[in-house]
Every structure is written in structure tokens, then in C-alpha cells.
Design a binder for these strands. Sequence first.
DNA 1: TGACTTTAGTTGTTTCAACAGGTATTGTTC
DNA 2: GAACAATACCTGTTGAAACAACTAAAGTCA
Lengths: 172, 172
Amino acid sequence: MTTRNLQHDIGKKKPFEHAEEEAYLNLIRTAAALAVDFERLFRTHDLSEASYNALRILRGHAHVNPKAGTIVGSKASGHGLPCHQIGEMMVARVPDVTRLVDRLEEAALVERVRCEKDRRVVYVRITEKGLKTLASLDKPVIELHKQQMSHMTARELGELNRLLYKARHPEQ
Amino acid sequence: MTTRNLQHDIGKKKPFEHAEEEAYLNLIRTAAALAVDFERLFRTHDLSEASYNALRILRGHAHVNPKAGTIVGSKASGHGLPCHQIGEMMVARVPDVTRLVDRLEEAALVERVRCEKDRRVVYVRITEKGLKTLASLDKPVIELHKQQMSHMTARELGELNRLLYKARHPEQ
DNA sequence: TGACTTTAGTTGTTTCAACAGGTATTGTTC
DNA sequence: GAACAATACCTGTTGAAACAACTAAAGTCA
């Protein structure tokens, strides 16, 4: 058996000179390959990976009635999250949360509420429609995750998580 | 010591229920974090990650005089690579090689030659200017790779490469 | 309290990615 | 060899990412 690796994958003639370079390209290629499937899934609900991510963050910080799955509190009371906090929590930094929220608001998946205490701040809150959209995606998303990683053992997934975390934290 | 992981990284309140989901988000986040540095580096030479990648592919398939670093063969003879092959070899699939090449040609980093045998095909060839641009990036790129991965052991890099490769090849 | 800095968000502009549709050339099949 | 399909690339259009400049509000400090 010949060892298959990135070099053959991309039709590179010579082996990689530096394992660091190979790791980087491997990372980009794998991330892109897996992301394509999710992009396609999200697009069936007119969402991008970024807008889905933002919605997930907002759901995680909404006051939801666990039984009914509805939002607790009125538009004015139960504030959501300030724009800049959304930006900080996104998996991939988005340098334009304003327009990301614009599009979500356009689709009535979120709503904006100006903060009265600090009038610079705008709270963003997920709507019932946003919750429903996410709910309809929950199962397909988990299933796609499982499908993509079905051939990886639990130990491998754990090790991959550890190495990926370490890779982006040089200081620790 | 508390174990730092993705959950704390993105300010998630609950731990991940599925290791598959965590691995995916870890992957996207790490790839984005590392890519940002390269995007910035490439942009100092008016290149994107995609156009740099295409240039690297074209250099790998050019007939270069190893001593002088110049291109062997005239524009008409030493053909480069057909557009669709470039697309196949990119680390991240680009569904529009034409305009990627358009921009590179605009910047005089590549040139196009229509294939005489099969007139559908257009060969793309890196120019001397393209080679020079790449050459000036070679050292900074390698150094950035090393810097980003300086805290990873050789064993960890090898394991990361193995796991990433496996992650995107469910069939094997 | 008034000048300065910082923070939060918006707006304007340019570039690029994504998708679909179109044209020219070649391959295939009856 | 004519009709059809497949391939290779180009073009048109739309939406979104990237970057910078801008406005408004709040904090800082002499």
C-alpha cells in the first residue's frame, strides 16, 4: 500500500520540504472540503455559514422557554447581544457585523434594540422565526457532522481537537 | 490548571455535546486564524491566498532554469497548465479559474496561450515577473509557517497531518 | 467643564466569490 | 456523418467580504 497524503491529493510533484507548510495546506484544504457541505445545507434556508453562526450565538444567549421553545421577555426587555460581542464569538472573524445583522434583520430572523443606558450599543436578539429556522436545521447539522466524521474514532477526534486548539495558541 | 479549549475560546456556555461538532468548529476557527496572517502577507504583493496558490501551482509546472531561475522555452513552446487543471490542484476549490487568471494576467504575472491541438484549451504559464514575485515571498512564507507552528513538536505536526488527511477521506 | 481619547456602530467603496447561462470545440453513437 | 453529449472556457449578474472613513456616544483627566 502506498501512503496517501496531501502531496498526491493536490498533484504536487515533490514531497513537502516543511511539515509546517504541509500542515497549513492540509488544514485549509480540509476546512474548505468540510465547509462546502455545510454551506450547501445552510443555503437551503438562505443562510451562509457566517449568518448561521451568528444565529447560533444569538440563540445561545436568548432567554428561551425550554418547553415551548419560545422567547421569554418582550422586545424591549429581554435584550440580546451587542454587535461587537457577536463579532468576538464568531468562529471566523467577520469585520462587518453590521451588515451581517442587516441581512438577518431583513429576513426577520433577528431584531435590533437600541440600548438606553449606553446609546452607542445596539442589542441584537433572535426572533421566533430565527429560532424556528435554527430548529429545522438542528438535526440535519448534527447528522452532517456525524456523517463527515463517522470514520474517525473518538480518540482521534479528541486528539484532533487537542492539536487544532494547540496549533492556534502558540503562547500556551 | 483549567483545560483551555474551543468552548472557552468562543465564549460558549455549555460544553459541546458532540466531539464531531467541536472538531469541525475547531478546524474552521484554526484555519481562519492561521490564514489571516498569510492573507496579510500576500496582500503586500497584491495577491490573495487563491492567486498565490495558483502562482505556486504554475511555478511547479514551469520549466525553470534552476541556476538562473528563468523560464526555459518561448511563450509558444513551453506550455503551462490548462485552466481546469489549475482548478483541480488548488488547495481550496475555486469555481472561477477564468477570472482568477484574468487578474493574474492583468498584473502580468501569467500569460495565456491557446492550445493548437485542442482549441478549447487555454494554457496558462507563469511569467518571469510572476517568478520574481513568488521568489520574493518564498522566505517570508516559510518563516511564517515556522513561526505559526514553532510550538508544535515534529510528532504533533505529523499526527496533525495524518488526522487532517483522514478527516477529509471518509472512504479510506 | 472642556478637550481628548476610546468605543460602538454605520456607511461608502472596491474587490472578489458564487452561480447560472452561453459559446466554441471535441468526442461519441447510431 | 449527422445528431447529440461532453468538455473547456468565457461572460453576466448578484451578493458578500474587506478596508477605510465617518458619526455618535461615553469615558478620562487636567
